[in-house]
Design a protein around this nucleic acid. Structure first.
Lengths: 249, 249
DNA sequence: CGTACAATTGAAGCATTTCAACGCCTGTGG
DNA sequence: CCACAGGCGTTGAAATGCTTCAATTGTACG
């Protein structure tokens, strides 16, 4: 494990972190300048991952959280008796590793879907820092709790929905995420294969493709490879929040 | 909010909590006697909820965690555009409210499926206490992180599985939970209606019933109303860990 | 004993998977 | 330059599994 503190990167680190447009998402609001400086010391200079490069492998000991600055990463978990399952997807502003704290190991293999940059946050140092900055820990705890609820709710909703509703839900979630980061919410590139999407939603690649084609015929969106353009978000939202099935009275 | 500390219940509280067989699950291991005493002060005397009684309603401000001592509770979340969704299920030893910390509100209405007893843990006092006992907070954080991963994984697995595999998975999870608490793992009462189970797994009540009947015909288990007896756990496990579909190549 | 709710069963329709075939693009090696 | 392989996406047809709807039986509780 590399040494931390003010090393050769010391001069630029604070500047980078402060200028990072994700700052508000990674760290709690309302830290004093002193506190901010302390946190900055922890954050390593951004890591760059090329497409298909691996950040961590399943079962590797957990040691760091990572904040996504740019790009898109996926987590694949191998479960016995089945092939790999795409269990998580991270876009800019997300924090990787929250699901590894309890286990002490990374619960899946994380790799970049396209060139990505990340901030590394060694967890033991982060923990030590929270002794002096309780807000920091509370912030993380809240994020995790919130993510837990959102994920629980969305997955339970998806369980009883048709492919049509699942995909609409998924695309809108991605769209909302991009929007929050300042990107366009209606026009974006999602560098996942149909297979990846299917694995994430519990569908086959054929069904994903067919459903996208059906959307296009209905002028709800346009897809070209992995470029998506949402044309009628209101209608997509209606699709996403219905089960997709004919009402049962 | 009721006052805490050594009140009329002061004399019995510590004794109750120490004798609770769930203690190892609620509190971190290795606390000193002093620390244990401090924690005991926080825990209210067990609350008793009758069947169908409500612990908290959706959107109510979050103020306490609850540890389940006996009984079984469910969480129903109302989402617009659909009927209620059963989003969580708690058995003895589980902690209620982890998904409310981030939101600051309870994300669903929690009610007892049968008579239940609970320990109430006011969260602000718990937070204050963690200042003196970092282990306590770390313990909670780990539990939450672990639960997050387990839930993420299991729900993603369920998404691509047949009713047969979903039910087997569910019954084994319940069985394992009872086993961990010292109850029989093969013979238990699960006081949920077919509808509840269906809502939790994203199936209809008819499918749940039919699948249970099919299990019975294959001598995998016996069901009588809400009494379950697992006869062939090994075979159920094989069912649960396969998708239930004919292999794709 | 009767009502209300829960569970079961049957039949029909629908959605998704499976399997197979094809087109497209990219990179590789001749 | 072309030929070709491999990955990815698309499309079609058949089979499977689940839902829907409706009718019936069973069970709990006044």
């Amino acid at each position: 494990m590399p040494s931390h503190g003010r090393d050769v990167h010391g001069a630029t680190k604070a500047a980078e972190c402060l200028s990072c447009y994700l700052k508000a998402l990674c760290v709690p609001q309302g830290l004093s300048p002193d506190e901010t400086a302390l946190l900055d010391d922890l954050v390593f200079p951004p890591i760059r991952l090329e497409k298909r490069e691996v950040l961590c492998v399943q079962e590797a000991p957990f040691d760091s959280l990572y904040a996504v600055r740019t790009g898109c990463l996926k987590q694949e978990t191998a479960v016995e008796g089945a092939e790999n399952l795409l269990t998580a997807l991270w876009l800019p502003g997300d924090i990787i590793g929250c699901d590894a704290i309890g286990l002490g190991r990374y619960p899946g293999t994380v790799s970049a879907l396209e060139t990505a940059t990340l901030c590394k946050l060694p967890f033991d140092q982060f923990e030590a820092l929270t002794q002096r900055m309780p807000r920091l820990r509370r912030h993380l705890q809240r994020s995790i709790s919130r993510a837990m609820h959102e994920e629980r709710l969305s997955l339970h909703q998806l369980l009883c929905r048709t492919a049509e509703a699942r995909l609409a839900y998924f695309l809108l979630a991605v769209s909302a995420c991009f929007h929050r980061r300042g990107y366009s919410s209606s026009h974006f590139r999602l560098p996942m294969s149909r297979n990846d999407i299917g694995s994430y939603l519990g569908l086959t690649q054929e069904t994903v493709g067919r459903t996208l084609a059906a959307y296009q015929n209905r002028r709800l969106l346009r897809v070209h490879g992995r470029e998506y353009q949402l044309l009628d978000i209101a209608r997509l939202e209606r699709l996403a929040s219905s089960t997709g099935r004919q009402k049962k009275l």
